[in-house]
Design a protein around this nucleic acid. Structure first.
Lengths: 115, 115
DNA sequence: AATAGTGTGTAGTATATACTACACACATGC
DNA sequence: GCATGTGTGTAGTATATACTACACACTATT
């Protein structure tokens, strides 16, 4: 899933900009081309959180989505949850089956500062 | 933090029940006494999620709290987040600075099925 | 036809994670 | 006073994580 998604996006960008070759992207991201090749073809498991974040920047993709495809949760979110574990555990489990729109309404209520 | 907390709770339970010795608890949890000893004294980093969950059951503690002390987020929560990463990422980041009471109100609104 | 650039196959490595094994000293109960 | 139970110190191990190194074939460029 993640690998395919990365490759698709990279090839898309490559059409208009030759600098999105596997080798050049790998270099800019700070990994070896062989490794990126394996990641894209899903021959190896997804890379570390740090590498995924660099890839998201490089390929203009959402880091949270990429991390999710790798089954990971961003360190900053983990930290927020770990500071109030019971509170967030309850909240997240409650929202498991709640449709996106309803959750978004909740988000906005909070954003609008009703508290 | 986690180790000390586990030891305190175990010793508390041991007062009324000799079967809460380090050795016996370790055996029931499925790890070796030496390992539990090191965990409690924080000589080694926290154990795996699976072991933490068994300890939480054995010592009647909240798993989410123990996991948080280990800097981890429960696999079931991770799964929920990873299914809708952008949605939950936004929600959690929004709620970072929101006081407990306001978050709880939100939880209850949802629980009450306003959607 | 030589050079540079593309991606890939096979193999190996460093570090972290999650523990176990064995031996010891101290205390407690019978 | 000897067995049994308590926790601990030192050392070692298996598996997973996160990569690298090197060599190769193919394509495009000059």
């Amino acid at each position: 899933m993640l690998g395919e998604y990365l490759r698709e996006q990279r090839e898309r960008l490559k059409v208009n900009d030759k600098s999105y070759s596997l080798r050049q992207v790998a270099q800019r991201v700070g990994i070896k081309p062989t490794y990126l090749s394996k990641i894209e073809r899903e021959e190896l498991p997804p890379p570390s959180e740090a590498t995924i974040k660099k890839l998201s920047q490089e390929l203009d993709l959402d880091a949270d989505i990429l991390l999710a495809m790798a089954g990971k949760v961003s360190a900053d979110l983990r930290e927020i949850i770990c500071k109030r574990p019971q509170l967030f555990a309850e909240l997240i489990r409650q929202l498991k089956e709640v449709p996106d729109q309803a959750v978004l309404r909740v988000v906005r209520e909070v954003t609008d500062g009703n508290w």
